[in-house]
Amino acid sequence: MNRPRRILAALPYLVLGGYGLVAVLGPVLIGYNPRATDVVSRLLPPGSATGAGEVAWLGTDALGRDVLAQIVYGARTSVLIGVATVLASAVIGLTLGVIAGYAGGWVDAVLTRCFDVLLAFPGILLAIVIAGVFERSPVVVVAALSVTAWIPFARVARGSALATRERGWVDAARVMGVGHVATLRRHILPFTAGPVVALATLEFGLVVLAEAGLSFLGIGLPPSTVSWGQIIAGGKDYLQIAWWISTLPGIALTLLVISVGLFSDQLTRRTKQSH
């Protein structure tokens, strides 16, 4: 690989690392409170000085809150919800998928029918209904997004289990009297790892977008949580006089999802090569 291309290939890692750092450390580095309202400093354009004597590098919103601080706290929300949802979906999907593929028969049939029923709804619609009718909380959002997000994991795991259960080492384990659970864990589950990691990054991007969509609609996360979707929705009424409120968090969100997409493409290519 030539030099510019190598830098280009490393870019998603750098951006993702940056988001990770911001999500973890940002709230420590940025002193001000993203929720503190300051009516004197409302709707300030990027780079102007606030009433408190600080510089609002990315401007302030309609309540005088610093947009940069909100983007930093929003990154934390997006990353946390994304990771939690992907983890929950992966655990549920892997468990059910591996069991269905290994057991076959009616267990497998029931799982496949569950896919069919859940896939009859657009994922975001089901998430809106579930997150909308229950109390607003991060846990409900994770659950609402996981309801459809586990399906791809289950499919991949089921496929791997179906392909590996007839292999020699599984038969050998069976002959040696290894229990079902141990066989699944030690002899089948490891073979799902490659595709599952690639899938997890792909799903992470989708989940982050879906969470932002929910927050944009005012569904899901409580208003006290800072999230990109809510900031963008809040800026919509002030587009004409304060373009930066909606525009800048959207760029942060897009950049994150694009980097995740590039990263996931690379992973997918690598797992394909190794097979």
Binding site: A212, G213, F216, I232, L253, T254, V257, V260, G261, L262
Partner: peptide
């Protein structure tokens, strides 16, 4: 890749803007 990564609601707002 860009088209798949844009949040649709944000694209809508940017078009309005």
């Amino acid at each position: 890749l860009g088209f798949q990564s844009f949040p649709t609601f944000w694209v809508g707002i940017m078009l309005i803007l």
